[in-house]
Every structure is written in structure tokens, then in C-alpha cells.
Design a protein around this nucleic acid. Structure first.
Lengths: 405, 405
DNA sequence: GATTTTGTGTTAAATAACTTGACATTTAAT
DNA sequence: ATTAAATGTCAAGTTATTTAACACAAAATC
């Protein structure tokens, strides 16, 4: 008796149930026993035994070490970690972060490099290839050991095609066949997705969004994007561009944005906007810790954040203002989506409560009571790894579901 | 082999499939044959035959008259209309519309009265009771013939409790036990829901949103609200208040709104806002067809719409401006949700292209290319009946699913 | 106009995937 | 020590479905 698992493609009932069991084992913190699975699934214990036996014979699932803490404990199940490995990659505007994880989603190695996404696909994808190859080698593995590689990019992804369509902060990448190029290099399953969506997935599976069915993840970096999880599933929209919150209009006549419009959220509260704002104030001679940076050096968002953390008032104020603008947009989003949690991640979120508090204030002031009472605004628990971790989760899902056929 | 029908509660597999079959027969325009069901469900024709036989024995389903147009036609199935009846009601700020429909969702009688929702629950629910009783009688039926009654109200509904929570345009209704009061009066299943959500459901089932999996319905009346359908299912959010788009901030320092904030969409583009705007202009002595209305008579939104339709330039301009503001909000929504269609309904939508064109312009200017290319902006096909029709659909679903146990 | 092809709907037997009910096992409560 | 309660397993029975065969009707082909 199983009903509602719309995420899985058509397959026979037992295989479907196997997949559900695998996911319940993966995503239940503290593990789950056969009896627990029975309750969750609405199947009898006898049926669960049969399913788990199959998975155990395949080598995917095993019983965890029993805790010696006394008291009868049911046999808790876990995924066999060494059955396979995956790689999760986040490509941002200025960096690439790659993680290698085993079948239980434990990260066994990571590596980060700096890039500039404006160098275009050829240059960046070569760099991407190098990091991935290196991190695999450093983990003591080879490419053939890797079942799948998940990649997050900061633009609207057409999942079926494996490319990005008209990405505002990825000039030169429009319709470039990212997935097929990488497929040729690696000869394993490559899954391309939007970075904010993957951040949402990561936080839902292993971060601040555990056990939350309706979740919004806001990635505030160079760009601003949102990942949406509705009823425990990633929501893409019709063409896969859902969550593009960065280019909603905040100020009718605000400063001009990379997308061509005026007053976009990203042009007001994005990483570049904050850095630009700081530069202007410095040049106007405002008193700040950043003064020493001079005219030739380009002030970055990280400079502003670290100065703010060290107590610099100007930088704190700039970040706080960005938070207020973000909060206005998030308040609208809370009214519209009515989520149980909004998770703030991405580079700018490193500034912590300096950014979060103004957001919380705006949400409680501008959202309807019903909605604002029901929502928490939290920082990403996985921090800068959120998107890469989501890529891991996705690659793992793909691989496990293939494996358990 | 059936997988993804998460809308249905837990039940055994065949019963579940029965419900799916009933819904496919209901919602497939032009009807569907056993072979068609087989393809849709992924079941064999033999299995479908067995399921349809059961439903036929219950009296819910039958074969439609064969078209005599020649050429082999499969036996098209239909719901037996006379097996049961339901009522669908829309309660707006100023009116109540009640529909009686048979099991095939054909409306057999309707009735509308004027009310003022500010008179509070006792007064309005008595009026509601009267209209419903009358329309049932006029349809030649009695209360015992009615299997379920669906009701839409213009505020955030807590479905589990059957009441509204902190509704901006329903003063005096906060936490009033609407459903249980009506239950006592009628002694049949009462389903309370948000009017915009029901509008979305109605348009999805029988209107402009047929065959669209991801749909947004915007109800522009006295209040402004949205109904969301994601992956063919109504989306409520955690506490049932999703879609409350009327109180997102459009102008930081705009005019004050019933909700207490400033510059809400509703305070700028809602029915009351439009009427108020017209009154002001008239008092300022602007040249308009409305001049004759004098100072004592309160100009209504309907006056403005009919004047605009008759060519009054001022009224046209006021509606067009409201459309532009709506369009800005809808553009954000399109970026965020990436729907395939946005349907504009509610009283103000009676003004047609005068309202729609500015919305389309704003969406194509302010939304990302990927999202705006994928979306159509249309008027509600069911017009002022959209929400009440959604209430019918919901009541019918409830009744049919109960019946086919 | 006869023949083949294609799609529809039905039936009976076989199979997959459960449930039922009984039982051994382990721990907690009395 | 005894009882209660939950876990995990096994064999037998049940249900919903598939398989495979066939009858039927219309369209396409010759």
C-alpha cells in the first residue's frame, strides 16, 4: 500500500518501494529501523523485511553497529558507504568548489579554486575539469569509481538540455552545451542544475531545512537566486527557471542591472552592489576601515564583510541596508509561498546576523500575520558548502536509483 | 503499476486507481476510453476493464452515447450525472454566488445576491444559508440530495479548522468557526477554502488552465489574491495562506492599506483603490462620464469599468495604471514561479484587455526572458463563476472519492 | 470489394507484491 | 521472576495486476 511518491519515474511497485526505502534510510537523521519504515510507508513489517532483504543482497543497505547503550534498540539500517562515490560541484561567479562523497553522503575530500565566470565556458570548464580530477585523485579514487557528478551553476538551467538559457551573470554561456561537453570529458552521468536549487536541496537533506516540507533557500552571492522545495520536492517551474528572484523590481528607478532593467533586487542587494556601494562611499571620503584600500584596488564583497565583522560602522550599515531590501523581497515571497522556513545562504550570508536581523524585521513588518508567524528565517547550516552538498545529494539520488533497479 | 498521485489519501491500490480513473474521466475534455485510461495510467487494458466494471456497477460511470460520425470510435466513458449533486459557493466582499451542479459538474442552477462582508459572520452566513437553500429548491432538489458544499472566502483559510485567520478585508471574521456553523445548518460535508485557490482550481479543471500543470490564478476584486497550482495540485503552503499576493509592497511610501502597511498592491490596484482614485479625480473636476454621479453617491469599481468600456479616457487610464502595477507584481511572480499560464480573474478583470495589456507589457519587460517566453497571460474563461466553479470541483472530488470507496 | 492492418475491449491463467496470522526474540515495566 | 510491548521473520492466503489469447470493429491497402 503505497501512494504518494511522485518524484520517481514509472517502474514496478516493488522497485518503487525500494527507492522510497533507500531515500528514507538516507534522509532520516539517526537512521531508521524496519519497523519505522513500516510505519512511514504504511506497509507491513513483513513487506519491509522483504524489501530490505533485497537491498541488502544488492549490497546497498546494511544494519548499523548497535549502540551498546542498553535498552532494546531496533536494528537501525544504513546505506553501505563504500558501495559507490559521487562528486558535487558548485560553480559560482568567482570560484569552484568540488566535494567527493561516499554513498552515505559523507564528504571525504574537498577542493576550491578561484575563477572568473566571465572568462566563458571553454576556460571555466577546463578549470572545472582540473579541480574535479584533482579532488578525485586526492580522495584516493579514480574517475571510474565515480558514479555521477552533480554541478550547480548560477543561472536558469534547462535541465532536459543540460545548458543555461539567457543567464544574467554568465555572459557567453547562453545555450552553451555544458552537460554534453563535460560528459565527453568524464564519461559518467553529469547532472546540471541551478545553484540555488541545489542549495535548497542540500539544506533540506542535511542542513537547516531537515523535516521541513516547504522551504525556500535564498542564495545571496554575486547574484541572488532562490531554490524552492514544495511538499518535499524541488520545484523547477515549466522551463526550469523558477526561483529567479534576483531580478524582481525593488525600486522603480533604481540603478541599472546586468539584466538591462532598473532597480532589480540583485542590483541593490547583491554582492557586487554592496562592494560598489562601499567603493563609492570610500571615494566620497567616508570614514571607514576600507580607506587604506586606495583607488586602484577594487573593493570586494569579502572586504566589506570582514570589515563589518571587525566593527566598521559604514560597512555594517551597507550590509544592513542590503538586508532590508532583501527582507522586502522575502516578505513578498513569504506571503506568496507561505513556507515554514527561509534559509539564507551564499557568500553575503557569511555576514550572519548583520544581514539576517534586518531581513527578519522586514518579514515580520511586511508579511501577513498568518504567514510571518509560521516562518523562521535562518542562516544556511551547511554554509558555503550548501550548493555543492545539494549537487552531492542529487548525484547520489541518481546513482542509488540506478543501482537499485 | 501506478505511481504518482500524491493528492489521494492512503488507501488500497485498487481503490486508489479507481479514484484516479474517476478524475481522469472527469477532467479529460472530450471524454476518455478504456484504452486511453490504460495509456495514461500505465496499466494494461485488462486492468482498466476490471476497474471500470467496478465503477460501472457502483453506478458512477457509464459509456457515453457513441458518436454516429462513422469510423471506429472507442467506447468513451463519462460520469453518471444523476448519481449526485453538489453546491459551490463564492462569497466575495460584496456578493454571494451559489451554483448547483450534477455529478458531471454541469451547472443546473445559479443564484447571486449582494451582501456586505463587513456586516460580520452572523449576518452573512444567514444570507449564505438562504441563497443556498433557495438555489437548491429552484433546482428541484432538497438538501438531502446534496452530497457536499464547497465555499470560497476572500481571506487566508486554515483548512483543518474551517475558519479564516486574520483576514485583511473580512473584519470581525477572525477565527470565527465558519465551517462548523454551516455544518450545523446543513448537516452535509462543508469544504471551506480561499476564493483565489478555488478560482485556480476551477480554471484548471474547466477553464483557461486546462492541461496546464503549473498555473497561477490572480483574482483582482476588492482584494487581490492568487491561487497556485503546482504539478497539477493546489498548493496551500504550511498554514494554508499561500498566494496572499495582495499585500506585497509595491510602493515604499504608497497609500495606506487595510492591513496596516503602506503601498500594498491591493491599496494600489484593488477594486476599492480604483474606485477611490476615480472619485478623487472626479472631485478634482476631471472631465469624465462619471461627473453626473455627484458627491453623495459612492462611485464603485463597476461604474469605472463600464465607463471605461464606453470609451471614457480617464477611467481607461486609471484601469491601465492599475494594470501596470499588477503587471510589476506579476512579473516578479513569473520570475519566481515560472508558470505556463497566468490567469486573471475577479471583478476587475471584467475590464478585459484594458487591464490585460498593461500586465502583458510589464511581464515581458520585467521578467527574465526564459520565464516570460514560457508564460501566457489570459483572462479567466469562467469569468465571474471561476471561484464558485472551483468550489464545485472540490465538493465533487470530495463526494466522488467518498462514494467510490 | 476482399484482405490486411490497426486499435479496442474481454476473458482466463499466471505472477508480483502485498497482508494475515503465528511465532521467536529482545528489552522495558511491574 | 513475570508480564507487557515492540521488533523481526516465516509460510500461507489474498489482491491487483500482467500475460496471452481472442473477438470485434473500423481504416488502409491491394
Amino acid at each position: 500500500m503505497k501512494t504518494n511518491y511522485s518524484a520517481y519515474p514509472r517502474m514496478n511497485v516493488k522497485t518503487l518501494n525500494k527507492h522510497v526505502v533507500v531515500d528514507l534510510i538516507r534522509f532520516t537523521s539517526g537512521g531508521i529501523s524496519r519497523a519505522g519504515l513500516s510505519r512511514e510507508l504504511g506497509l507491513t513489517r513483513a513487506a519491509v523485511t522483504s524489501i530490505v532483504n533485497d537491498l541488502s543482497d544488492m549490497g546497498i543497505v546494511r544494519e548499523a553497529e548497535k549502540q551498546t547503550s542498553g535498552g532494546r534498540k531496533p536494528a537501525v539500517l544504513e546505506i553501505v558507504p563504500s558501495q559507490g562515490y559521487v562528486v558535487g560541484v558548485e560553480m559560482g561567479a568567482t570560484h569552484i568548489l568540488a566535494l567527493v562523497a561516499d554513498y552515505s553522503a559523507r564528504v571525504i575530500r574537498e577542493k576550491e579554486i578561484q575563477i572568473d565566470i566571465k572568462d566563458g565556458p571553454e576556460v571555466c570548464l577546463s578549470a572545472l575539469d582540473r579541480v574535479v580530477q584533482q579532488v578525485i585523485a586526492e580522495a584516493g579514487l579514480q574517475l571510474v569509481d565515480i558514479h555521477a557528478i552533480g554541478i550547480g551553476v548560477p543561472g536558469p538551467v534547462v535541465i532536459s538540455e543540460g545548458l543555461v538559457s539567457a543567464p544574467p551573470i554568465m555572459p557567453g554561456w547562453d545555450n552553451f552545451p555544458i552537460r554534453s561537453v563535460l560528459n565527453k570529458k568524464w564519461d559518467c552521468h553529469v547532472l546540471l542544475n541551478n545553484d540555488a536549487e541545489l542549495g535548497a536541496l542540500g539544506e533540506w537533506a542535511y542542513g537547516a531545512g531537515r523535516n521541513e516540507a516547504n522551504l525556500v533557500y535564498i542564495k545571496v552571492g554575486t547574484g541572488i537566486g532562490a531554490g524552492l522545495i514544495f511538499d518535499n520536492e524541488l520545484y523547477h517551474g515549466v522551463t526550469g527557471s523558477a526561483g529567479e528572484i534576483g531580478h524582481i523590481t525593488i525600486r522603480e528607478n533604481g540603478s541599472i542591472c546586468t539584466c538591462g532593467n532598473r532597480g532589480c533586487l540583485e542590483a541593490v542587494a547583491g554582492g557586487n552592489a554592496i562592494a560598489l556601494r562601499a567603493s563609492e562611499e570610500v571615494q566620497r571620503g567616508k570614514r571607514t576601515q576600507l580607506v587604506g584600500f586606495g583607488d586602484f584596488y577594487q573593493i570586494t564583497i569579502n572586504d566589506v564583510i570582514s570589515a563589518a565583522r571587525k566593527g566598521d560602522l559604514l560597512c555594517q550599515q551597507i550590509i544592513s541596508e542590503a538586508g532590508t531590501h532583501l527582507g522586502t523581497a522575502i516578505a513578498s515571497l513569504v506571503n506568496l509561498i507561505n513556507p515554514s522556513i527561509v534559509i539564507i545562504g551564499g557568500g553575503v550570508a557569511q555576514s550572519g546576523d548583520l544581514l539576517l536581523e534586518p531581513i527578519r524585521t522586514a518579514v515580520s513588518r511586511r508579511s501577513l500575520r498568518v504567514a510571518s508567524k509560521a516562518v523562521r528565517v535562518s542562516a544556511a547550516l551547511l554554509g558555503r558548502r550548501a550548493s555543492a552538498m545539494g549537487a552531492v545529494v542529487q548525484a547520489l539520488s541518481h546513482s542509488l536509483h540506478q543501482f537499485s533497479e
